[in-house]
């Protein structure tokens, strides 16, 4: 047993920055009343169940992939972020990264 206080758990809260971002976007939308949390949990559990059929989920990266998938589907369905728009903006971000010199802040053009 280690002596370190377990309060400062060794594993980071969010392993990847995008895990934190997708979590925050979801919580912000819920707090703004864009959807009920129980509705979210129901959709999310369906995604987890579906993805868990293909392989056993370890609760790490695959968990947040399922989270993102659920959020994308919900926002597309609500018309807030249609799939085509998401793809276009995603491509624009990719382009921005690939054309911004290393070390400079990346902005959408």
């Amino acid at each position: 047993m280690s002596d370190c206080i377990t309060h400062s758990a060794p594993e980071p809260i969010f392993a990847e920055p995008w895990h934190a971002q997708v979590f925050a976007v979801t919580v912000a939308l819920n707090e703004a009343g864009r959807f009920d949390w129980s509705d979210w949990a129901e959709r999310f559990s369906i995604t987890l169940k579906r993805n868990g059929l293909k392989k056993e989920l370890d609760g790490g990266d695959d968990y947040f992939h399922a989270w993102l998938e659920t959020l994308e589907a919900l926002l597309a369905e609500q018309g807030k972020a249609p799939t085509d728009d998401v793809q276009d903006i995603r491509n624009a971000w990719e382009e921005a990264y690939l054309t911004t010199p290393h070390g400079h802040p990346v902005h959408l053009r």
Partner: peptide, 9 residues
């Protein structure tokens, strides 16, 4: 993809 959602929203 998350960045795209953030931008749109």
């Amino acid at each position: 993809r998350v960045k795209a959602l953030e931008t749109i929203l």
